[in-house]
């Protein structure tokens, strides 16, 4: 780049500067906000994870690895693996539900498309808690499902609650919308002539679906998987309300350390552990999906 002459620099600098200043000013406040309330709060979590609990039970900063050592035992590892398993199961089930639903609405919804999507969005934006509670009420031992089963003489009651099924079911119910919307969006943008062409090329709707439709909506799929996996892994409400001690997830443990057990440094270490696992998984995932996207 050729350096502008000194004269030109002098002449044009004030105005450019004035313009940039306005935008910089606009950015300054929100940036400062995010630094103060988000970035620095994350830093504190990391710092406290190396901290300790004083004799009076207060958290204090320190430089020790006790908390991480405490995490390294079978109980916590099992909990981590269970959380991972639940989250993955949630993703898989959501995918199986979301794709057909999004497909039907996007390609066969006709003029009811928007109404159908709104019908999905409305209950999902309504309180997450209430929806979990609704399942609890429905599945409890004296709930509607069990009493119906009893009345029909089919069974004298099934224990639904406190099972892995109930917890994963709750997670799916809670987050499946995050899978449907991105898939729906990419299916909506899908050029249907692509499917026509695919039918000529691949002979048959099933092969066309897997060789044309699914790859063409890959962006939505990848996005949806991420959007379901992230909140599912960190959730504690589903396990708290629909599960029990045997189905607890990392989130429950974190919640206990902060709100009940009052061991904040240990809770911080758990949080950092969760975030680290998430980051590793995310990076691996993003890398895998982006190479795959390049290959095509």
């Amino acid at each position: 780049m050729a350096a502008p002459t000194a004269e030109a620099t002098r002449r044009t600098a004030p105005r450019s500067a004035q313009r940039t200043r306005l935008w910089a000013l606009l950015l300054a406040l929100p940036t400062a906000w995010m630094m103060t309330f988000f970035v620095s709060s994350m830093v504190i979590v990391v710092l406290l994870s190396f901290g300790r609990t004083t004799n009076d039970g207060f958290p204090a900063f320190a430089l020790r690895t006790d908390n991480y050592e405490a995490l390294w035992n079978d109980v916590y590892l099992e909990l981590f693996l269970r959380s991972l398993g639940y989250a993955l199961a949630t993703v898989a089930i959501s995918l199986l539900i979301a794709y057909p639903v999004a497909y039907v609405i996007a390609l066969h919804g006709g003029r009811y498309k928007n109404a159908l999507i709104a019908a999905i969005v409305v209950p999902f934006f309504a309180s997450y808690l209430i929806r979990m509670y609704a399942w609890k009420a429905l599945l409890s031992d004296d709930g509607l499902v069990n009493s119906a089963l009893r009345n029909l003489g089919l069974s004298d009651g099934i224990t639904f609650l406190n099972t892995s099924y109930a917890v994963v079911g709750g997670l799916v119910y809670g987050f499946v919308v995050f899978m449907i919307l991105p898939i729906y969006a990419s299916l909506e943008r899908l050029d249907t002539s692509l499917i026509e062409a695919g039918k000529d090329l691949y002979h048959g709707p099933v092969r066309t679906f897997f060789f044309v439709t699914v790859p063409a909506t890959r962006a939505g799929l990848y996005g949806g998987i991420l959007l379901v996996f992230l909140p599912a892994l960190g959730d504690f409400v589903s396990a708290q309300l629909l599960g029990g001690a045997g189905t607890f997830m990392v989130g429950n443990l974190v919640q206990q350390q902060f709100m009940e057990g009052q061991n904040w440094p240990l809770g911080s270490a758990l949080t950092v552990g969760m975030m680290t696992a998430l980051t590793v998984l995310m990076v691996a995932y993003l890398r895998a999906t982006s190479t795959q996207a390049r290959e095509l």
Binding site: A8, R11, T12, R15
Partner: peptide, 14 residues
Amino acid sequence: TEGTILVGGEDVTS
């Protein structure tokens, strides 16, 4: 980058 602009005889470059 360089040069001048006059509108109605008045320098408006900056």
